[in-house]
Amino acid sequence: MGIGATFLRLACLVAVARGLQLDTAFVLSQPTTGLSATGKAACLRGKINVTASATNTKLLVKSPTGQPDLTQTIVDMATVGVDYAAMVNGGPRQVFGTYHLYVELCVPADPVAARKVQTLQFLNHGGTLDHTYWDFAAGYSYVDAAAAAGYATFNYDRLGYGLSDHPDPNQVVQAALQREIAHQIVGVLRKAKIGKNRIKNVVGVGHSAGSALIIATVGKYPADFDALIFTGISASVQGVMIAQFAFNLVPASLDPSCRFNGLDKGYLTQGAVAQDFQFPFYHYPDFDPKIFRKQFDTRQTTVFGELLTFSSVVAPQPAYTGPVDVVLGQEDYVFCQANCSYPTDQAQTFVNALFPASRSKSTFLQPKSGHLMAQHYTARDGFEHSLQFLQSNAL
């Protein structure tokens, strides 16, 4: 549905302490301003309301009663000869609601550079992560790198993640609704102004499940994005189930950190042993142990609602002609089983298979990097590649 009734015009909203004015249709609750990890970007932070409807799937699953129930469900999902997603598909189910989402809109901290911004990057994080993936720490911040190159970024916690609302994890937090929410937000961002200049281009940027959501959005709304950057995803899914076993998923509300107390047991997170996080996400010894520990200690949730419905909205997009970039960690286990060059370059295979009509294709295998590319020593290599890709396409 339209967002005219959801967002009211808030003209000349102060976006940064240095006096830059931002005109958007967002009304933020509890707005704050601050800087990115190394101060390259000035950010407006707060929560917005999004009213959206979607045709979800009635999943014939319930939240686990405890760990044994959850473990058996994961075994059932991996049972040979069983199409678990099809088995639990109870048909279409309409959902509708108003949801509160945490968002961050960042622009170059230099007001002169900010007033020249023409392109905004719409960032979408992966599962068990949140908005912090994109602005994690000094030297590990895509938001910083983008701002230094003259770009604005919009970063948010998807529904069911981080500081955003956590509705029913099985029936509500699904790929179809996430797609509609993303589309609503992009529609508003396309009308945003920084100073007197309206944003001209919006680039969809995703990581892992966030990349899948960008593909789903393009499939239904091809005009939403002027270019696409996919990270942490390939056409191969052989490692996904093995990685899920390695996660040692537990109901998040039972995590000893107590960070998820009160959540429905359908919200899941990795087990409390750091090795459960390293196996699918990191390549040793190519990461800073302090960065690894911070990511582990701040890990977020995932839900079967998303995991079981992405396949229903993700498909090749032969009609999309815009520029497409794909970046994979060379040793990504989740999507390459730790070798993204085998049997061929998996980034190249992905872009050719899903976006054959793209007028400008670019790929990069980030060396010495696992699935969480932004938290490896070579993170800047991946950042620079994607930003050069945009510049080479006059974006």
Rank of each mutant, 00 (worst) to 15 (best):
H100C: 05
P108V: 06
Y102P: 00
G187S: 13
Q118T: 13
K116W: 00
T132M: 08
A149F: 02
G127T: 12
D135F: 04
P92D: 10
W134I: 04
A148C: 01
K116S: 12
D168W: 03
T79C: 03
Q94D: 13
F96S: 15
V112L: 08
Q178N: 14
Q178G: 11
H183N: 15
H166L: 02
D157F: 03
R93I: 04
V95P: 06
V186D: 01
H100S: 14
N155W: 00
I185P: 01
A175Q: 12
D157W: 10
T153Q: 02
N89L: 03
T65N: 13
A114M: 01
V103T: 08
V172H: 05
T71W: 10
H166R: 08
D69G: 08
D135Q: 07
V107W: 00
V112M: 09
T73N: 02
H183G: 14
P92Y: 10
V117R: 10
A113K: 12
S141T: 05
V186N: 04
Q94S: 13
D110S: 13
T73G: 07
Q72E: 14
A78E: 11
K116C: 09
V186Y: 01
V143R: 02
A138I: 03
D130T: 12
V107P: 00
V173F: 11
V95T: 14
G187F: 10
D144C: 00
Y84F: 15
A85D: 13
Q72V: 06
Y151S: 05
V80H: 13
L123F: 07
F136K: 07
Q174L: 09
F136W: 10
I181A: 02
H166G: 00
K62N: 15
K62F: 13
G91A: 09
P68E: 07
T71R: 15
V82P: 08
Y84Q: 10
H125P: 05
A113Q: 07
N89G: 06
A147S: 10
D165I: 07
A78W: 04
A176E: 04
V88L: 07
P108L: 01
D157G: 09
G81S: 11
G90D: 07
A149W: 00
E104H: 00
F96A: 15
V75Q: 14
N155H: 01
A109I: 03
D76A: 13
A175P: 08
A138Q: 09
G160N: 02
N155I: 01
R158G: 03
Y102D: 12
G187A: 03
A113D: 11
A138W: 01
T71C: 10
